[in-house]
Simulated assay, not measured.
Amino acid sequence: MAFEQHVLTLAGDTPGTHATLYSYTAGPEDAQVKVHLQAALHADEQPGTMALHHLLPMLRDADEKGQLRARFTVFPSVNPLGLATRTLRTHIGRYDLVTGVNYNRRWPDLYQLVAEAVEGRFTDDPDANVALLRKAVGDWLDAQQPGTAAEELRLAVLRSAHDADIVLDLHCDSDSLKHIFTSPELMPGLQDLADWMQVSATLTAEDSGGGSFDEMLPQLYRKAARANPDRPLPMAVETATLEYRGQADVFDDVGLADAKALFGFFASRGLIGADPGPRPVPAPAATPFDATEVVRVDRPGLLAYRVELGQKVTKGQPIADLIAMDGPGAFIVRTPVLAGTDGFVLSRALSKYVPRGGSIAKIVGTQPLASRAGGYLLED
């Protein structure tokens, strides 16, 4: 039996402190395909952890039956540092409180770090080139000496993910329908994942501007290929951020359904020798992330939504009212907040008090927006 729990103790940055990172492995160590799964990189986002809680026994049982055809590594809650950041009864699991950095931002530009080590060494063998690139990243990781707990955590996660073939990062939005973020080259290849998840949208971008975890490995292969156009360097990884609804959607029945869908996806790929079940209804095709409007408000106030999740809207349509909380019309005046594009409402804000500049909704359209061209596509 290969199903195994692993425990890594991360040294704390202050006297007498530490954090514990748990992971599980399952499947043959010499399997040709490696899968890396993680949840709660934003530690205040728990739907993915619930899904992996239900998936782990499925993988354990499949492992005992000899059904696993891939090597699975699972981090059910990948950010113990973020789990500890509770202040005045509020969980602030999205940001490192020491640096202010979002835990899912500023992941390293791996090709820049290994470009010198691989220069002139690629051949006409694509498999050998992928192996060379992965080894170079592995060697760089082995040479690092983390200076903080956050750096140690990132290096531990990177050691697992850097040579994986499938990397799925489980998140959630504030109040949202299911959706996926991924790289454009990976679609329609990951359409089967979108189908099994039954997402409302798959949003694609080469670089959304923040150095997100799911963009790190595609950037490695993309940059290597562009820097070596005369050598075959395939996109040797499938990565995606899976957004499992909203923060409040943490329930056993929902997590179990999500786990069954993930199991079905892997089984349909032949990575688990089990019946995946009926093929799901096709999900919508991917759209570019810069066709999705992030609606922001130009003043603080109290939100009163006029639209539901999934509702179709047109440009100029009021999607919410912002109730004034100061000035002559305080708590009386309502200002409409208008949609800036045609599309459907993918997400809303869970907290209805919003500051000036706060994002209150994402509207998924089909045509790239001039306001989003070449900019920072993420909410924060």
Rank of each mutant, 00 (worst) to 15 (best):
A117F: 03
D195Y: 02
D326V: 13
L322P: 01
L133G: 00
G246N: 05
D253Y: 10
A274Y: 00
G273S: 15
A240N: 00
S183A: 15
D165S: 15
F289A: 08
E238K: 00
G273H: 15
G211Y: 02
D195M: 14
M197P: 15
D96E: 10
G365Q: 10
P218W: 00
G210C: 14
G327R: 04
G82D: 11
A285W: 15
T87D: 15
A320E: 01
R231I: 06
A227I: 07
E293D: 14
R372E: 12
L262H: 07
P280A: 04
L322Y: 08
S200N: 05
P28Y: 07
A51T: 10
H179G: 13
W107N: 02
T204R: 00
P355T: 09
L59R: 09
V130M: 02
Q5C: 15
T17V: 15
E4V: 12
A370Y: 07
D290H: 11
A194G: 05
F181I: 08
R159H: 02
D342P: 08
T9V: 14
A330E: 03
W140N: 01
T341K: 07
A136M: 01
T90K: 06
D253N: 03
L346D: 05
D125K: 06
S176V: 02
M197Q: 15
E4D: 14
G329L: 14
R348C: 04
A194E: 00
V35L: 04
V167Q: 11
Q112A: 13
R356I: 14
M216S: 06
D214I: 04
D125M: 12
D96I: 14
L88N: 14
A257Y: 06
L233H: 07
F263I: 05
S359T: 03
V313C: 15
P278M: 04
V78D: 04
V157G: 01
L220I: 11
Q145S: 12
V98Y: 09
G211W: 12
Y221P: 00
